[in-house]
Design a protein around this nucleic acid. Structure first.
Lengths: 195, 195
DNA sequence: AGTCATCATCTAGCGATGATAGATTATATT
DNA sequence: AATATAATCTATCATCGCTAGATGATGACT
């Protein structure tokens, strides 16, 4: 059995190397540079080996995306934990989310832009994909009644800000003001008169 | 000169047919089905002819995107015009933006997702790309001091909502509540105490 | 009218992609 | 040692964006 164990382990390691190589190339040269041949060279195997690990190129992108969702959740939780008070938590989560998106563009592309078969917002959604959402929920919940709606909207606003900034569709250098506006909106929602 | 005129006109018409074909195929089969060969078949010319109109495939996507920005601006202006009061204008613009994004997914992809060389948020930005932004500015301005920041943030929130909804990352069937939340946030911003 | 230059368009092909079929080598079992 | 199974490779497919060079049509000039 010990031989089989080693093989399983080596297979898993090779799979990790594929994902790591895909991510590294994507971050340094963009996703269009991530080709099956290039990855095969990188791990020093032939192309068909990759298809024994992943059904398609998209599946490799998806694997990188899952890594990204794990790391995003960790970043957001750390930001919330390091905060001083509920409002500061909201602000730190917002700025951390934004910084995450801008500092790892290829990773964020895999998570939100490139086509993958990942399933969200449903019962069978993987825990890794749910985790970041819950981290946002945690800091939003003190400020609202309908937690899920507000979490989704807060997330959407941050995602939109990041996207428009990344693609140069809004003026650079003003993102702090925009983030502050979003955070303030959540805080205001608490005591606002619903007229 | 009349012959030259006809040629110029025919060239322009052919260019329109290329863009129209690209858009139609993208809407019905997705952008990956929009190949140069396919477009060449569609307009009944050989592939190289396309390159006498557009420098690359991306340039064709960009041409469709520009059409999209024109139409989005028109939709938003119409929504604002049909509204009853400033708050209703805000709401109608928001819902129209959202409906636009969801009803023309391929067009919206060209405008915001696919790589193009279009320039935004700068001096040399084309008027068509600026127009929609100004339509949003118009309905937002009664509710805020820093109009540009609020416009950018409102737009980002709507874009984020549309993106997450389109890709199934938030629960379906709840978008009205999320839009209402964003609109209310703009209204609240007016009288909110900045504590 | 006939020659020539210019423009429009085509056929054919390049290098690269994602993916796969079938041969080949290594490993494990009897 | 012989055989079966698994792992891996070479070679290839169809398709992609894009381009070079040939071919045909059009217009200007002697």
């Amino acid at each position: 059995m010990t031989v089989t164990d080693r093989k399983i382990r080596e297979r898993a390691e090779r799979e990790d190397r594929i994902v790591a190589a895909a991510r590294a190339i994507a971050e340094s040269e963009g996703w269009e540079a991530v080709t099956i041949r290039r990855l095969a060279n990188e791990i020093e195997y032939s192309q068909p080996v990759l298809y024994s690990h992943f059904a398609s190129r998209d599946a490799i992108v998806a694997a990188v995306a899952v890594e990204g969702f794990k790391e995003l959740a960790a970043v957001l939780r750390a930001a919330a934990h390091a905060a001083d008070g509920q409002r500061d938590a909201l602000m730190k989560v917002a700025t951390s989310y934004f910084a995450f998106a801008l500092s790892r563009p290829a990773l964020y592309d895999a998570m939100f832009i490139l086509p993958t078969q990942l399933i969200f917002a449903e019962a069978e959604t993987r825990a890794e994909l749910r985790d970041g959402f819950e981290a946002i929920t945690a800091v939003v919940s003190p400020f609202c009644m309908d937690v899920e709606i507000v979490t989704e909207t807060f997330w959407a606003a941050l995602h939109g800000l990041a996207e428009l900034e990344r693609s140069g569709r809004v003026r650079p250098g003003m993102h702090e003001k925009r983030i502050a506006l979003v955070v303030q909106a959540i805080i205001n929602a608490e005591n606002a008169a619903p007229n």
